[in-house]
Amino acid sequence: MFFSRPKALKDKGLLSMNARNVKYIGTYNPRHLFPNVDNKLKTKKLAEKHQIAVPKLLGVIKHQFEVKKIDTILKPLDAFVIKPASGSTGKGILVITGKQASEFFGVDGHSIQLPDIKKHVSNILSGLYSLGGKPDTAMIEALVHFDPVFDQYSYQGVPDIRVIVFQGYPVMAMLRLSTKASKGKANLHQGAVGVGICIATGKSIKAVQFNKHIKKHPDTKIAFDKLAIPHWQNLLRLAASCYELTQLGYIGIDIVLDKQEGPQILELNARPGLAIQIANGKGLAPRLEYIEKETASRSVNERVTFSQQMFSN
C-alpha cells in the first residue's frame, strides 16, 4: 500500500506534522523559550545550574579573532567535540576522537589537521550551520565515552536515546543506532536504525530502518530482541527534569550513555521529529491527549512513575 487512508492513521493514533506544529509546539512551546534549547550554550549553562548531567563544556569561541587561540584550548585535550551553539539537526558537529602530535583523528579514524579545525570553527562563527545564517558561537565539549553496551548494535557513530517529554512526562522513547548507510550518523532518514523503547522497562519493542521493520542490525547482524537500556530509571528522570529546565511543554531530549557518568543530555529539541512513532509502531497522539487531561502537579520522580505505569507496552 503506497498510501494509507487518513482514518487508519488516525485510529492508530499517529500524530501528523501539522498537528504537532499547531496543537503541541504552537500551544505548549512559547516562542520566547526557544532559545533555551536552540542555543546549546544556553542549554548547557541552564543544565549546569539545575545540576543536570551534560558533557562538560571545555571552551567557547565567540569571535573570529579567537580562532587563532584555539591551539591553547585544544592543547590539553585528546578527544573533544566542536559544535555550533545554534546548529540545527546535528549540522556542523565535528568529533575528534584522538590526537597524535599535531594531527587529530575523526570518528572513523581519518586524519584532520589543525587548519581544518580552525576552518570549521570559523565556519561555525560565520553562521554556516545556524538557522538563517546568523553569526554563531562554537562550543568545545568533552567527548562522551560511550557505554560499550551498544557497541554490538552500532556501526561507528553515537548511539543516542531520544525521549519525547510532554509537560514533564516521558511519553515515548527510541534508541538511534548509526549504520554504514547512515555514514555513522544517527539520523533516521539517512538510514540509521530506530529502536522503539518501552517507557516502562527500557527494553526494545521493534526496530526500523528506512521505514521498514528489521530484526537484526544491518551491519553487525546482531538481533535487537535482547536489547535493554541500562540506567533506564535514571535516564527517564533526567529526561523528565528537562521540563523544569526549559519550561517547554513539548520537547525531544537526546541522551547518551557515558561509561563513567551514566546518562547525559546531549541535545534538546523544541521541534522533535515524528519518526519515533514508526520506531515504536505506535502513535503519539493518544499518550499526549492522555497527559493533557492530567491536572495534578507532580514531582519529577512521580511523573516518571506515572508514565511508566501508563505507557507500558
Binding site: M1, F2, F3, S4, R5, P6, A8, L9, K12, L14, S16, M17, V208, N211, K212, H213, Q277, I278, G281, G283
Partner: peptide
C-alpha cells in the same frame, strides 16, 4: 505522511 506512516498500518 499517508505514505510515510503506511508501514505502521500493514500489521
Amino acid at each position: 505522511e499517508l505514505h510515510r506512516f503506511s508501514p505502521l498500518i500493514k500489521h
